[in-house]
Design a binder for these strands. Sequence first.
RNA 1: GCCGGCGUAGCUCAGUGGUAGAGCAGCUGAUUCGUAAUCAGCAGGUCGUCGGUUCAAUCCCGACCGCCGGCUCCA
Length: 649
Amino acid sequence: MTPPKSVTVRFPDGTEHRFAKDTVLSEMLTRTKPPWKEPPVALKVNGTVLGLGQPLSDAASETDPFVIEPVFFASPEGQEIYRHSSAHIMAQAVKELFPSVKLAIGPPIEDGFYYDFDLGRPFTPEDIEKIERRMKEIAAAHYVFERKALSKQNAIRFFEEKGETYKVELIRDLPEDEVITVYEQGPFTDLCRGPHVLSTRHVAAFKLLTAAGAYWRGDERNPMLQRIYGTSFPTQEALDAHLKRLEEIKRRDHRRLGKDLDLYNVMDEIGPGLVIWHPNGALIRKLIEDFWREQHLLHGYDFVYSPHIARLDLWKRSGHLDFYRENMYTPMSIDGIDYELKPMNCPFHIMVYKSHLRSYRDLPLRYAELGTVYRYERSGVLHGLLRVRGFTQDDAHLFCRPDQIEQEILKVLDLTVFTLKTFGFDDYEIYVSTRPEKSVGSMENWEHATAALESALKTKGMAYRIDPGEGVFYGPKIDLKIKDVLGRSWQCTTVQVDFNLPDRFNLSYIGEDGKEHQPIMIHRALMGSIERFFGVLIEHYAGAFPLWLAPVQVKVMPITDQQHAYADEVAGELTRSGLRVETDRRNEKIGLKIREAEKAKTPYMVILGAREVQRRKLSVRKRSGDNVGELDIPSFIERLNNEVVKKSV
RNA sequence: GCCGGCGUAGCUCAGUGGUAGAGCAGCUGAUUCGUAAUCAGCAGGUCGUCGGUUCAAUCCCGACCGCCGGCUCCA
């Protein structure tokens, strides 16, 4: 046997060492002691991420010297490995406690991991506790994650013998010549590509969070498995910080804040997914809508209004009945004719277009409407304001000539960025969805329109990702997603080119050449749905709406009833200057009044005692707790009006 | 829609096979007070709905409705 070749290894600090190629990475680290503040989760060897239990020779490529980079927990790769190992520990615990369980998959996810099990019954909260306790024992047992390679045949046989039918199904889907790897940790073996941490003891702090049903491979025709979610961190402190963040997320939940701040309600008596806006929420909505209208007038839109129902024939012609049926409600019969609740506004806007003969000189036409639509959503997906059955789109339809597409998209992007920025959203993801398999419209049209979308984004310097084949059947689109505090992405803005409706409704304009041409139609919504946008806004601001949106902007608080006359005078002046003011005339201590104004997240509190009356001043306190100090009435009004005009976030 | 958990006063929640409690909010009274809770009293509930078991159900069982966490889909 020839002795294993040795290689030169270079660390990030430039130091080089020689090692036999079969040296295991952990041993290499013990011998070289690199000056890292924390131990790495894994190492990158010539760019390949390897577990510390693997030898240098597992690197996918060889360079001279071998280049080593540490993979720390802080990196996405490090977290993936760490959480993946955590999932394996959970699987071992479950397998030991419930030997009949079948294992499905257990990947790391953002902020944690899960594992799907087929147990034949759900896990109870007590089960979860037991599993977590067992996991602690497994971690303490210091089982080493050992990597083994098997041929596909052997791997199938191995898991068949164990009765792990899901694993067998997974392996069968792998390519024929693929080398299958499994990881052994003590008595437990799992199919896994790896890599893993060195041993179970390296997973220091973890917590199981929830159990939920999940279909095998996410397909509802498949069996329902039991999923357990958990998370893990290298230290207890980091785990605690994460759990604290989860609490914070709960605190910002728009459903809780919606109730606390009396913004809106969804009531059993009215129906699921149907929102009533209470005065506070309605006022904020009105302000948002005012802003929207003002901006649309400035940007060359025309406003239109349309009814909530229309003849079924209209929806047949638009194609919604064919392509959108599962989201539409049952038609109602009126005087023997079927009518349908609208799931979209577009057919109405098209009818406005069709009400006249159009010249190329008329284009582009931009019809905008805050149009309320109704869509059937399965009961399980309804979620506060973020997913409802009746909602108002800030909808608009642009009709333009093919050569105007790009210019129109540019204008839409400008308005979008301005709108989102006004509400403090600077962070979003942009997707361009291209032609799906099943589509209408010529290839040429698709290419032209897709190029126009991309070119507009490039002109604006907006980074985007391509979602290949994810376009709607009728045209390419740009979607813009904002992230809420939970890290969930919500699609708000959407800009969609439509080759279908102009065709179905036989839209035309008379061109320069005196002949009929078909206009391009673009659907667009900036906030998407007012309900959803409002929900995201509540969480985004944690209920503390900026001054221009706050339902009550100033709370005037006399300390005793000796100051009531002055308080009324102050409140009157503020109100006349256009501010939304309330006076707390209750016979309560100032501490309580402040506490309640804080809870209501009122931006400014004006405190009036004998001192202020005497000096004709205001003591101003912000909801942040900042004491602004004494101001006279005109300078306070000026200060607030400035803030309102600027729409400061 | 599917899997699981939950549904008790306006809100947050406790509780029991013998028809229910707390805190906050509300009402009444006292207190006139300086930057996140003054004190006392009163009132408030067909225990989600319907059915079953039982001498007796808010509690046990079933169905339905809704909410919450997921699966899938979208604004």
